[in-house]
Amino acid sequence: MKNKLFEKYFVFSPYFWLVLFFFIPLAIIFKISISVSEWGMPPYQDIFLFDNGFKINTSFENYVYIFSDYYYIGSFVNSLILALISTIFCLVIGFPLAFYIATSNIGLRNILLVLVVIPFWSSFLLRVYAWKIILQNNGILNVILLNLGITSEPLQLLYNQYAVIMGIVYTYLPLMILPLYGYLNKFDLNLIEASKDLGLNRFKTFFKVILPLSVPGIVAGSLLVFIPVVGEFIIPEMLGGSDRLYYGKILWEEFFVNRNWPGASALAFSGIIILVLPIVIFQILYSRWSQKNEI
């Protein structure tokens, strides 16, 4: 009897907290996203009206409004492209690093791993700020370029989409390296030797042996980078310019500047449906698939 009570306490305390402070807030976003907007405070009408008998007062006009305006769709597409490019860069930089760390001897491996993770522990905001210093017109990168004679006058490196990509790749790189390392660390390095002995050249060994075995790590790392980058707000705000608008910025402005709560809620809920839901489904399917194939 006592065990039962105890188990209930363990299961239901966090259950209660998460339903109240996580699930209900998501439900409220959905509720406001299908409300009719109006001028006032709060800037939307109730969905249940009781004044003349019971009436449900909902509307999908916020969604129609978002999906018919290129301003919103375009910024969402921009964010997806940004996330894709950043993920590819993180993969290209992170993979060789993770691979060489995983193939080092054990003492060196632990030291390198700590060294890779340490920057990730330091403040995110300040790491972005560091790039703002580096990319200034009179910043260190421009000084180097000028001294090498590559340019004759300082380049405008800051406040454009390339600076945003720089900042994102830098801050998210450890999130790519860690899962990659986790999987690369697991597999038997003799496989590489074996494939070389069997006459495969380096190129073939990479594509036929190393790459297929690291697919789970690539998937995990890519998801960890891709999803948060789509919703990223701070980096474009600090390093980006007006050349490109992103989903995070649009959502922020719709809420804080335009005070269009139903619109912002519809944007947020669309983000959940388009971005998070497929990934949750994908992860469930993927874990089933990998269990079946024993990866």
């Binding site: 807030p25 998801l223 919703g231 959502l251 809420f255 912002a264 947020a268």
Partner: peptide, 10 residues
């Protein structure tokens, strides 16, 4: 996996 922005708004 939820973007912070959406979490904050909710």
């Amino acid at each position: 996996v939820l973007p912070e922005l959406i979490l904050g708004l909710s």
